[in-house]
């Protein structure tokens, strides 16, 4: 008798447990808000990053809040935008830092809010981030140098067109480039300028450099705007072939210049992957999954000869239309 009643109690308890377990089926999740703060709101590189982010946002069902100043060197503007995003109460922050030092404070502030901080493209001088997704810029710089050596030879006069001083991607690329150039004492760097990712300034500087240095053999341009500006000037002056151009990134214009032989090699990154992975990592972290704290994207040198290889054309033309 006692045993039976015990048995019944046990079964009832099990039934209760089972009914409790059933209750957590449906949970309506509010879409997470993720801020994407870039250095600039125009340009091939940034728009491709944004496209990657948008693709990921659709896939993972989150909202992307896009912030970027109009000028790449506008560090204070970007700091303000990050603050704006944080005030808006975003659930995650993806940042391409305009300045290695000056964005530290605001990044750490965001980190203290315990939201995922994913740094893409250019690093900030702090450990208080959750992940860093970027091209290996040092290696990219080295590869540009390698391409320079292969195309212009070990004995040449070369000018460097960088973009913004103080940002980690530009600094790393320069560092990588000089690492290689310094191996060849006959390579003579005649000029180094910063175009501030401004096309007109790039063109102006390019003209200045070319007019000052009659024996210029090559120009290394360290981002897409610098590359396009330099290529345009070289084409205008009819110096194609005489001044070799080692470019960065793969905008349609650059590809055309590459096919026309004005640009001789270009180092491409994978901005789409940066944007996509940035969002993916933020979402993964929000979902409590483990993420890599550094995702390195390999840079690749594209020349006219290898640009239509299956694997390269995919990278160069990531969009079907």
């Amino acid at each position: 008798m006692k045993k039976v009643s015990l048995l019944i109690k046990l079964i009832l308890a099990v039934a209760c447990l089972a009914s409790c377990a059933k209750n957590n089926d449906i949970s309506i999740k509010e879409k997470s808000k993720i801020a994407l703060v870039l250095k600039m709101n125009t340009g091939y590189h940034w728009s491709t990053i944004k496209q990657g982010a948008d693709t990921a946002a659709r896939e993972f069902n989150v909202n992307i809040y896009f912030y970027a100043p109009t000028r790449e060197e506008d560090v204070n503007g970007q700091i303000e935008l990050v603050n704006q995003a944080l005030d808006a109460g975003v659930d995650g922050l993806i940042l391409a830092a305009s300045d290695f030092k000056q964005l530290v404070e605001v990044t750490e502030k965001a980190y203290d809010k315990k939201i995922p901080i994913i740094i893409i493209d250019s690093l900030v001088d702090t450990n208080k981030i959750h992940s860093y997704i970027a091209t290996d810029n040092l290696d990219a710089g080295r590869k540009a140098g390698q391409a320079l050596v292969e195309i212009a030879g070990t004995k040449c006069n070369v000018a460097i067109m960088s973009f913004v001083k103080g940002t980690s991607d530009a600094d790393d690329r320069e560092r990588g480039l000089f690492e290689l150039i310094n191996q060849y004492p006959s390579i003579n760097v005649v000029a180094k300028e910063y175009c501030m990712s401004n096309m007109n300034r790039a063109k102006m500087l390019a003209r200045e450099i070319i007019s000052k240095n009659k024996n210029l053999d090559a120009i290394v341009a360290l981002n897409s705007i610098a590359s396009e500006g330099v290529a345009q000037v070289v084409e205008e002056l009819g110096l194609d072939g005489k001044i070799k151009i080692i470019a960065f990134d793969g905008t349609i214009n650059e590809i055309n210049y590459l096919e026309e032989g004005i640009i001789h090699a270009t180092v491409i990154q994978n901005p789409f992957a940066m944007g996509y992975l940035g969002v993916k990592y933020a979402v993964d972290m929000l979902n409590g999954n483990k993420i890599e704290n550094y995702y390195k994207i390999e840079a690749k040198v594209i020349t006219k000869e290898n640009m239509y290889l299956q694997e390269n054309q995919k990278l160069l033309f990531p969009f079907i239309k």
Binding site: G52, T55, N270, Y276, L277, K314, L315, F317
Partner: peptide, 16 residues
């Protein structure tokens, strides 16, 4: 073995 169509063609192209 080349992909003609993929719903996430961009990710495939980007190597992701």
């Amino acid at each position: 073995g080349n992909i003609v169509y993929h719903p996430q063609q961009q990710l495939i192209n980007a190597g992701l």
